[in-house]
Design a protein around this nucleic acid. Sequence first.
DNA 1: TTAGGGTTAG
Length: 645
Amino acid sequence: MRAVSARSKCIASFPLSRLGHSTPISPHGPTTRPSSPPPPPPSLLDDFAEHCRRRDLPRAMKAMHAMQRLGIWADAITYSELVKCCVARGAVEEGKWVRKHVFSGGYQPKTFLLNVLLHMYVRFNLLRDAEALFDEMPDRNVVSWTTLISAYANKGMNDRALEFLILMLREGVCPNMYTYSSVLRACADLGVLRQLHSGIIKVGMECDDFVRSALIDNYSKWGELQDALDVFNEMVTKDLGVWNSIIGGFAQNSNGDEALEMYKCMKRAGFAPDQATLTSVLRASTALALLEVGRQVHVHVLKFDRDLILNNALLDMYCKCGSLEGANSVFSRMVERDVISWSTMIAGLAQNGCSLEAMRLFEQMKHSGMEPNYITMVGVLFACSHAGLVEDGLHYLQSMKRSFGIDPGREHYGCMVDLLGRAGKLDEAVKLINKMECEPDAVTWRTLLSACRVHRNSDLAIYAAKQVVKLDPDDAGTYILLSNIYANNQRWEEVTEIRRSMRVRGITKEPGCSWIEVNKKIHAFILGDDSHPQVDEIKRYLNQIVQRLMSIGYVPDTNFVLQDLEDEQREASLQYHSEKLAIAYGIMSLPREKTIMIRKNLRICGDCHTFTKLLAKMEQRIIVIRDPVRYHHFRDGACSCGDFW
DNA sequence: TTAGGGTTAG
């Protein structure tokens, strides 16, 4: 009511020109009522605009109420500033009040202001309100449509986003680059992405950096890196976002080398990395276990030391590169920690052989009031598993639903199978698999298989291996393991059958490969490949090491050779396993105080494990080997995995 | 007034 009467009051004397525009205050134009009370001080509207500009919401609202009492209407631009102020301050109620206010009293807000309100609802995650407003709008322009399409895409409502694109085209509204870059995020399959890409080329919108960035990002998400690279290479000039898209694409698709190469190109092109660049570069360094590269990136991270995502990535890098010292330092200095920070640190401690510290940190996390999530619990159970805490593990598995509302999934059961398997409780592990609410997958069975191998239970191992092969028919390691178990039991017919089925399926064992970073360079050692320039020197040095180790009791264990070779050849084959060459090179090249960090593509074999334990003791070195599943910290003749992997 | 790129798991 107040607003209706207010409309008739005079505002013509206000110095609107000082606001930088001359839009009328009401769509009906200013009205004058000479007999009304004296006009308010001219500063009121200016003050209001200034408060909005400064995002000082309490003062802006106070000025707004004062103006309302005096019957003054601001213009659409000023109202939009107030709405933006509400968005910036997260002030939902004030935002809704503005909407009510501008809709009352016959004031007909312009599409421009309604779009701002629409955007406000989207930002406040009030999609239903946004839709209701959209339906009420007398005129919807490309911005109105794009605001909703973008909201649907962000919420994963892909069909709805695409449906709106079609509706808008039917209504004769032309999409712009904002629309395309939004709708590209809603491609639920590669076919739709390719269709949209052709459409974008037809209308000539592929030159926009945001559209290109969205195309690169989406092709990367579908694993189509060549397409992503084609889009990238077609561009003459690229902005930082586009560089970040391609670097992120490579990093997320386990192409760390290419990601780091692109990062170098980006710097050569004159761009300074931002938080997103550094996060992706850290991810690439993490995947490649390049601690020194990660440390160099850390220097740049200091500029963005309050960025949570970046700090989490840094934390993960230190954990996965085997530097708990670095991880602890980052974790303790973080000004803000979320569930990902805690989960990363808990899993990192557990993976690096500090299970009890991981459990303590979990208690600290709960004490801090942070709610654990699905992934946190995987880390906690992993820690229980590595510390052999069967009772604790079972307790957490049974209570996680009740305590934290988390349904145990495959990953949690996997940790438990590992835990029971480690403890030699193979029957209980099988019972647990049979009791799982979700279907066991190849990983579950492979975990049981590992336990059977350690505890030398051939029958169950054969059963588990058959389950793995059923679910993952291309897993060469399992075929070979199964074949060796049969061979050890003199079941030659089965051995022949397995070898035949491997031939038929074209399955070959991936050669073992180990990487080590020396002087900021990555050195790769591949089984049977002598291309390293110092290979002869390294082999000579390795032979000396083996001789010295044998003199103190090391006996090569040929059981781990997965080939049909005579004993002597078997030993020779073992001697040049890629990790042994990498370790020898590390000892030759790195100063004594440096940890020798090796990354492997395959699981470490038992012989290399024994060899490394003894070597770490003999040379008084710390050696870390990260295989695809576990971390092995060798120190003083022992390994953090407790000889179970 | 509408659009991008980044973090945790066995």
